[in-house]
């Protein structure tokens, strides 16, 4: 590639549906060749962002640039392709016919046999789509996305609804392909997928990016421990004001304190408050994910 443009430039993207702000001032820049996981819980705004990235919907505010141009142009030139949750397939076409028909819409594509092979569905090319499993249909969508040999591949929760084997096959196909230097952005709410397949993780919550970095950097965010105790009527503000406290969460009679100094917090809880059942746990990527993507006070 000789292009010097970023693969994706999102700037201040905002999108509301009625009173709900799905995407709230989101800015993101992805360089060519990066494999980026867009990680967040359901309702975090991942799909809405991807729809705007692909030109399927228009932002209320903000701008989208894909490979230096508009999303519509990038799609029409086959520079960007996508595997979406919502894209349907015609049940009465065969797998091979679906690929060949889609290929006709482009000026130039990779050969149908090649994309079927790369998606791992050569053996079911003559099968009618309506008789394919969910995983096979998803690999067909992937084959369709491979047709234009896109510079940027976008996948929205591509393995939702697949069994473990299906997920593994799908990611293997994607990884084989990613070695070609393509930029890949995928949305997922599976931590292990983000961890295993992305160079970079962008964590989103409530339409905003709450963390952005390499997998290692995101894991470092989880450094420290969580102190959990039973403490009816906990004074959240007072606890949050203690030195070394990152976040305080009250769940019913339980209080969870995320901190870099668990000893001091445990001592405080046991000596200055009525807390009991104190537990101290170290945090992992999943905790970091939860801490960063769950609604909470403070930022």
């Amino acid at each position: 590639m000789t292009s010097t443009h970023p693969a994706v430039e999102l700037d201040g993207l905002t999108k509301s549906f009625g009173a709900v702000t799905a995407v709230d001032g989101l800015s993101l820049r992805v360089q060519p060749g990066e494999v980026v996981a867009f990680l967040g819980p359901n309702g975090a705004g991942k799909t809405t962002t991807i729809d705007m990235l692909l030109g399927l919907s228009r932002p209320d505010r903000g701008t989208v640039r894909v490979l230096g141009g508009t999303p519509d142009d990038a799609v029409a030139r086959g520079r960007v392709a996508a595997v979406l949750q919502t894209g349907g397939l015609l049940k009465d076409l065969t797998v091979g016919e679906t690929v060949r028909m889609t290929a006709h819409f482009y000026r130039h594509t990779r050969p149908a046999a090649e994309v079927l092979e790369r998606a791992g569905i050569t053996d079911i090319a003559d099968r009618v789509v309506g008789r394919c499993s969910g995983g096979q249909q998803q690999r067909l969508r992937f084959a369709l996305a491979l047709l234009p040999d896109p510079d940027l591949m976008v996948l929205d929760e591509p393995t939702t609804g697949m069994d473990v084997e299906g997920r593994r096959d799908f990611w293997q196909a994607l990884r084989r392909d990613a070695r070609r230097g393509r930029t890949v952005i995928f949305a997922t709410h599976y931590l292990d997928e983000a961890d295993a397949y992305a160079d970079r993780i962008v964590l989103v919550r409530q339409g905003r990016i709450v963390a952005d970095g390499t997998t290692a950097e995101i894991k470092n965010l989880a450094a420290g421990r969580t102190v959990r105790a039973t403490l009816p009527g906990a004074d959240q503000a007072a606890l949050a004001a203690l030195p070394g406290v990152d976040a305080v969460e009250v769940r019913g009679d339980s209080v969870l304190v995320r901190t870099g100094d668990s000893d001091a917090i445990a001592r405080h809880l046991l000596t200055r408050t009525a807390a009991r059942d104190v537990e101290i746990t170290s945090r992992n990527l999943e905790d970091a994910f939860l801490a960063l993507t769950t609604a909470q006070t403070g930022a």
Binding site: V75, A82, L84, A145
Partner: peptide, 8 residues
């Protein structure tokens, strides 16, 4: 919707 991801 799938077609909107193609040049058609």
């Amino acid at each position: 919707r799938q077609l909107r991801l193609t040049p058609l």
